[in-house]
Design a binder for these strands. Sequence first.
DNA 1: ACCTGAACACCGTTCAAGT
DNA 2: ACCTGAACACCGTTCAAGT
Lengths: 238, 238
Amino acid sequence: MTHVTRMLGRMAAGAKKDRPRLSRDVLVTAAIALADAEGLEAVTVRRLAQLQGVAPTALYWHFRDKEQLLDGMAEHLFTEVVLPEARPDDWAGELRDVLAAVVAVVRPHPEVARLMPTRVLASPAGLRLTDRALGLLRAAGLPAGPIGGIGLFLLSSSVAMVAAEPGRRLPKDPQEREDAVRVKHASFMALPPRDFPAVVAFADQLSDCVDPDDYYAFNLDLLVTGIERTAARLHEPA
Amino acid sequence: MTHVTRMLGRMAAGAKKDRPRLSRDVLVTAAIALADAEGLEAVTVRRLAQLQGVAPTALYWHFRDKEQLLDGMAEHLFTEVVLPEARPDDWAGELRDVLAAVVAVVRPHPEVARLMPTRVLASPAGLRLTDRALGLLRAAGLPAGPIGGIGLFLLSSSVAMVAAEPGRRLPKDPQEREDAVRVKHASFMALPPRDFPAVVAFADQLSDCVDPDDYYAFNLDLLVTGIERTAARLHEPA
DNA sequence: ACCTGAACACCGTTCAAGT
DNA sequence: ACCTGAACACCGTTCAAGT
């Protein structure tokens, strides 16, 4: 933890005067790094201030309250999503690109992902993504009524996919990680196969993500295919 | 807030001796009610103790720490899901029933929903749901490799659907709610239509859930249809 | 404009002690 | 077995004051 502090902070030994000026962005970035390293609950006003070599109350010049700091963390990741180029006559492919772009940015930050499903509409960056998604759903020919809710769900579930990735939050040290996975695996294998046949059968997949790329590819396809099929059914009704 | 306290607690005026004995279940239920009424951040060890007319440290007889209390809240909702009966020769319909059963239980508790995507595998009740879902995916004929990750995602995104419902966390008082919705709607309409054409077009749907039942029905169909189509493609390849 | 210092109410948790 | 009381380290936030 001292070791982590040294990596995240910037005050090795009393370099107190020449502190690079504070800013919203510096604080948000540091908060995300802190969440990545030690989890969301380690992100406290006082801890963050200490890492910047500043009084806790200094943060309140840049944020109205802690909630706004958390909003800023979510917004920052939404901002970093690079929107794919348009694909005329292939709304499904483009939609997949949009969701994949979101996943690509969020994947390295599974802890921050937990903040995002409820904040899609809370920033211009999130709205930009929402707008793109809704436009594509309209292009798909879906009925106008449910489009808003569907678009919101697509973005939310894409980030939820990251938060729910099996094996997220396991120790990153390979040694410790292996041990933790084994313990988890054993706990599944200890279940009565009579009551949990499938959990026992797929214990390895639930203990850790066997192939993360496959996990994301398959589930993104699932979402896009669902939209595609629903749209297709509108044109060739039962 | 005093008013809420009176409803959630059980000490109107000094009824101190005849306090119905504490238990894990009583505490978990009270915690869920508190989250429903005032949000997840209102759920503190001390607040909960006060509502039960008990010393804060009393909770530590029943829970190792606060994390375990939160685990208990998520577990409690998973426990309340009533599994649908089997549908031989209709795995898709049965899968939809399972996910719908989860949604039905979680819908009244959107705040608690935020705890659940990361806790699907953390309790027997969650594992029971997972087992059922995985069994159905196997019945669908999906390749074994990604089934674990898909099942986990289906359950996670079902509860994420609740957490992301547009208009969640709005005041329940109809008067206040209407005001809040109007403000939200206006903020969307104030966006430049050049940059946010779709958000402007669907502003009403994003401000509040026009028809919650439709929201859930459509998005659940989306998930199930996605699985169905993917499975079908395996039998009639390109 | 940007930050400090003191102060306040509240938080999770421990541990020894009571019944 | 179940709960209290005292104590500790930490938390978010306010406000007046400094530069």
